[in-house]
């Protein structure tokens, strides 16, 4: 009864004119959006929800100023970069008690050693999503994305670190290469691949793979899981040469006007039931121990979605590259213009 009264007053106070607003900037298709309404109802804080397509989009928008987001979802290397450039606010973990549910495996990673600036949101790998009815070769190497047999049947991620990273691995280099010569070589390799590529895309890739528009696609693991649930002919493989292991975090940009609400929302997203719903909806792997237990065993034990440490041998996490990034920018612009 008392709880109900409290809730009622909360809702009523939420309706008053000086309504608190939280500006959230997340990846497209990266949250079960019904959760937002629930958070609004519970806290009376109004959420303005915008989406971006790549880390670089988000970074440029925050960097150029003029936007005032309270909560963003950058990946590992971007968290480091933004932290180093003083673009992130420290998170007060005392305000995020549900942080305790995050698997220790994902805490204190190199990109943010003490989780001072970010709380893990999702994690995954980069690999090849393919249609088993259209591909009869074994999919175990990045070479297949350069196989002329699949001309105009390949979809590539329109994201520079991912695309150049794959080319670097194929050449036997580190996907964090800082050698301009190696980066240029990777660019040449991507230009050679271009005639085989049907399209460079992002969120559309999963839909196009589900509808059988292409045979092979470079994807993030969560999109692969999502697509595989809609079309049983699809399968996901991590090539033997290795791949990128990534973590997306929740972070608060410097100068956020409503840091308290942002922390409240982070804690909300770390609730077991909410984290479960997000993982279930997006297909991405949650770092939340309890939420993972709630998932359908078929997904929970799926090695594509939740690889064990021993499956992740050849993997590398992206690191922030500093000035060399200009080289990546230049090469990617040339590949796209080619």
């Amino acid at each position: 009864m008392l709880g109900g009264l409290l809730l009622l007053t909360l809702i009523l106070s939420g309706c008053s004119s000086n309504k608190e607003t939280l500006y959230v900037y997340n990846w497209g298709d990266y949250m079960d959006e019904s959760i937002i309404a629930e958070f609004e109802k519970e806290t009376g804080i109004k959420v303005v929800y915008d989406t971006f397509a790549t880390n670089e989009d988000m970074y440029v928008k925050i960097k150029s100023g003029g936007s005032s987001y309270d909560l963003i979802f950058p990946s590992d290397y971007m968290i480091t970069r933004m932290r180093d450039e003083g673009m992130l606010e420290k998170i007060n973990l005392a305000n995020v008690p549900n942080f305790k549910y995050i698997d220790d495996r994902f805490k204190g990673q190199d990109y943010d050693p003490n989780n001072e600036y970010s709380i893990p949101y999702m994690w995954g790998t980069v690999g090849i999503l393919y249609n088993t009815t259209m591909v009869d070769d074994p999919v175990d190497s990045w070479d297949i994305l350069w196989n002329p047999k699949y001309r105009k049947q390949i979809l590539m991620l329109d994201s520079q670190r991912d695309a150049i990273g794959v080319a670097l691995i194929k050449l036997g280099y580190s996907l964090n290469s800082t050698d301009p010569k190696q980066i240029s070589e990777a660019g040449e390799l991507l230009k050679q691949q271009k005639p085989l590529v049907l399209a460079y895309a992002l969120d559309e890739i999963k839909d196009k793979m589900v509808s059988g528009e292409a045979a092979l696609a470079l994807v993030w693991s969560g999109d692969a899981i999502y697509a595989m649930q809609s079309n049983p002919d699809l399968d996901y493989a991590i090539p033997k040469e290795g791949t990128n292991l990534w973590f997306d975090g929740m972070a608060i940009p410097k100068g956020a006007k409503n840091k308290a609400a942002a922390e409240k929302f982070i804690d909300f997203l770390c609730r077991t039931e909410i984290a479960f719903r997000n993982a279930d909806y997006t297909g991405y792997a949650t770092p939340h121990v309890e939420a993972r237990k709630l998932l359908d065993p078929e997904i929970r034990n799926n090695k594509a979605a939740y690889p064990d440490d021993e499956d992740l041998v050849n993997v590398e996490v992206f690191v922030s590259l500093g000035e060399v990034l200009k080289e990546y920018d230049r090469v990617w612009t040339e590949v796209k213009a080619h």
Binding site: T54, E56, D57, Y59, V60, K61, K63, S64, D158, Q160, K194, V197, L198, A199, Y200, A201, D329, W332, T333, K336, A337
Partner: peptide, 22 residues
């Protein structure tokens, strides 16, 4: 409709401002 591979001058400008930041 061009699948991001038929880069036109508009795409090039957009990319410089929104993705690359140059």
């Amino acid at each position: 409709l061009g699948g991001g591979q038929y880069t036109l001058i508009g795409n090039l400008i957009e990319q410089q401002f929104l993705v690359v930041g140059d």
